[in-house]
Design a protein around this nucleic acid. Structure first.
Lengths: 251, 251
DNA sequence: GGCGCTCCAATTGCATGCAGTTTGGCGCCC
DNA sequence: GGGCGCCAAACTGCATGCAATTGGAGCGCC
């Protein structure tokens, strides 16, 4: 079921990688919600390593965009803005179209079986929590990427998929998994049939609909940029009294 | 000329970032050729920091795929295989098509001027070394990405462009820059005109031709996987005497 | 009561030190 | 002479320690 490929890009078995994997998973399963603080000491203590190692792990995750790192500040789980979420999905669509284009008609029987097994697992997990469903759905896409045996593509798809995962946990709640699962099955079928154009279209539609279902509000607030939200209001009072952005705004 | 945007993704002004930037530039200008060793001590001494910081910087660059990091081994500048190079270019094509799609017809006059200035700089640098030409050409693409004001897109385009840069230095020598410059101008023109389909086609063709010019040999060796290359030869002697992969093979 | 100031605990930024692993060079043996 | 093994130097993996910065509680003033 698991155990696809041995070589993770630049990620072997040192302590840093272990912590990265653990945190990554905690984040995409929403055990660590966006905004959650990640002090180096606490991580080090929790994982039984020194602060140096925890720090290094945080650096890696920051490079992946899963956490935000500001000088002299406690690291926090990233809280992408709505626009960033949409951008991530747009990139993801292009990357995954590339994945299925490379894969169409080139999958072995055992690979197809592996994909079907995974979707079966998704099916079984429908009773469980949303977090697990989301993680499994994401892993389906990463599994596909692995089958291209292009390490670079695997890396980028994984990263951007995790980021999308993160935004899903931010913006969506109900997340009807059923159609997603059906779409996964349809993609497998089209891949097996080797219909390149159709599978690209399917993947495009699949990701786009997930994005649209999740990122419902195209304009209003929710984005973390409180300053922008308040800008029109600030205008009203600008001439009234001097507003020097009280602390609560900096959040 | 420079100074586009203030926020580099998760990269501010700490010592780690400074070292990353320096190394990145050294690598893409081929001052550090693929395979070059990067001992932590040496870096630390050279940049006046401790090994801890140098190590952290190496970690970041490894995450970007510019260097290779193996446990208990000296870090080396990455030497992508031919296949990895081709994969990188394929990804890059998709990402940059997305860039120009988003940008078509949406550029301000000053942005267009900035782009033209940059290409002028490329033109002036034609007399200089290849390394500088390649760097400027790469920076043109990154400049475009910046104009989408999508930090994620900037990050991915930058990374993959740097990787391509690295492979260019590995596989190509002459690198006729002229047509590349003309193609850059054509892209700017199409962007200004707002012809989305055409500019996507132009970008696709531009990158594809750069890739094809550089990655000349589709099959032979050059890929770093010496074991595969020697496999047929090994067969010949297999029954002859027991070959237990002498040290030289492990590279 | 609300606002601002000061000071201290919490936390990060970074260097150093020690232990374990790899490298490659020297000498030994065939 | 060529190959094998051993050993020291080089290097990495990681923990700890110290200085610098932050942010927030407590206190005084308006």
């Amino acid at each position: 079921m698991a155990a696809h490929a041995t070589s993770k890009t630049s990620e072997s078995s040192d302590k840093v990688s272990v912590i990265c994997r653990a945190l990554r998973r905690a984040i995409i399963e929403q055990a660590l919600a966006p905004g959650a603080k990640l002090p180096e000491d606490a991580l080090g203590e929790r994982f039984g390593v020194s602060r140096t190692i925890a720090r290094h792990a945080l650096g890696q995750l920051a490079a992946e965009g899963l956490i935000e790192l500001r000088r002299n500040r406690i690291a926090v789980v990233a809280t992408p803005s709505w626009q960033e979420a949409r951008d991530a999905f747009d990139i993801r669509i292009e990357l995954e179209r590339l994945v299925v284009r490379q894969l169409a008609g080139k999958l072995t029987k055992s690979q197809i079986a592996e994909l079907n097994d995974h979707v079966d697992a998704e099916d079984r997990a429908r009773g469980g929590t949303d977090a697990v469903s989301i993680r499994l759905a994401t892993e389906f896409h990463i599994l596909l990427a692995h089958m291209t045996s292009s390490p670079i593509l695997v890396r980028y798809v994984s990263e951007v998929a995790y980021r999308c995962c993160l935004t899903l946990s931010l913006f969506s709640r109900p997340h009807s998994t059923e159609c997603a699962i059906n779409e996964h099955r349809a993609i497998i079928a089209a891949l097996a049939k080797g219909d390149e154009a159709r599978v690209m279209e399917l993947m495009h539609h699949h990701l786009d609909s997930v994005a649209n279902r999740a990122l419902v509000a195209p304009a209003p607030q929710r984005g973390r940029d409180l300053l922008d939200i308040l800008a029109p209001y600030a205008d009203e009072v600008a001439s009234d009294r001097v507003v020097k952005l009280p602390k609560v705004v900096r959040r």
